[in-house]
């Protein structure tokens, strides 16, 4: 079975984001960009299913600027068989990405799409669910375990009170949570091999999708700052402060 894995290029998780001086967006120039960590987990899940003989082909997809080629090359080095870039300079909202992915799903006919549960830049947590809805497919979000059958998948999900296991009908969309696996690193020989793997470039217009944003970003700003605190010397002083100054106990 074919699996499709969308991957997003985001500011590396180790870098603290800052607003641009004019508040028009987040400062990204000159900063390290990486594959969204949840998408690395999604790639890893797909690769393990392929290694187990349950998946025949992995197609990585990225929607965004030309620089996303780099993210796709990483996906190819990790184990994707081929890649598709939907290239645009528009700032894409999750709904637009879901529409682009839908057209690619109809073209590629995968039985499974594995997405990260959220991108760590916009923290939206929407794309996988939207894609599933547009396709009329089942979904299993926040997955910490996947068992793939031929017509169904059994997926354990991280929910507020604990864990839930769903049996979902295939084709379906699964989104990954942190505990699903620990992603591998790309090895140097695989990075070299990835350069020869096919990477197709399309545009939203090729796919017949209007990606115009429905949301207007008015401003980006620092959140309200916390007042700095103090260091206390010992437990007695801590208790005194909590009782008499903060009055929380």
């Amino acid at each position: 079975m074919k699996v499709l894995v969308p991957v997003k290029r985001v500011l590396d998780y180790n870098i603290k984001a800052r607003p641009k001086a004019d508040g028009s967006g987040v400062e990204l120039s000159g900063l390290k960009m990486s594959m969204n960590p949840f998408d690395e987990i999604a790639m890893e899940a797909a690769i393990r299913l392929k290694e187990a003989g349950q998946v025949s082909e992995i197609i990585a997809i990225s929607c965004g600027t030309q620089a996303c080629q780099e993210t796709l090359r990483t996906a190819l080095a990790l184990g994707a068989d081929r890649a598709v870039l939907v290239e645009t300079d528009e700032a894409l909202q999750p709904l637009a990405v879901a529409k682009l992915l839908k057209v690619l799903v109809l073209r590629e006919q995968p039985r499974l799409v594995i997405c990260g549960k959220q991108a760590i830049d916009d923290d939206a947590n929407q794309t996988g669910q939207m894609l599933a809805a547009l396709l009329g497919w089942a979904q299993a979000t926040f997955a910490s375990r996947i068992e793939l059958g031929t017509d169904h998948a059994s997926v354990t999900r991280e929910i507020d009170g604990g864990l839930e296991t769903l049996s979902i009908t295939l084709p379906a969309v699964i989104t990954t949570d942190l505990r699903l696996n620990e992603p591998r690193y790309a090895t140097l020989p695989n990075i070299m091999k990835a350069k020869k793997k096919p990477l197709e470039t399309l545009t939203p217009a090729d796919l017949g999708v209007d990606v115009t944003s429905r949301l207007t970003l008015l401003k980006v700003a620092e959140p309200p700052a916390r007042q700095g605190g103090i260091k206390v010397n010992d437990v007695a002083e801590l208790l005194d402060k909590l009782k008499n100054e903060a009055k929380v106990i």
Binding site: Q93, P94, L95, A98, D123, A124, N125, Q126, T127, Q129, M130, L131, A132, A133, L134, Q139, T141, F142, E158, I159, D160, S213, R214, L215
Partner: peptide
């Protein structure tokens, strides 16, 4: 975990953007 799970499906089927969180 629940709202995040189903709400984006509604937004997509209404063809509207969702504002998360």
């Amino acid at each position: 975990a629940s709202g995040k799970n189903w709400m984006p499906r509604v937004a997509a089927l209404l063809d509207v953007a969702q504002l998360s969180d």
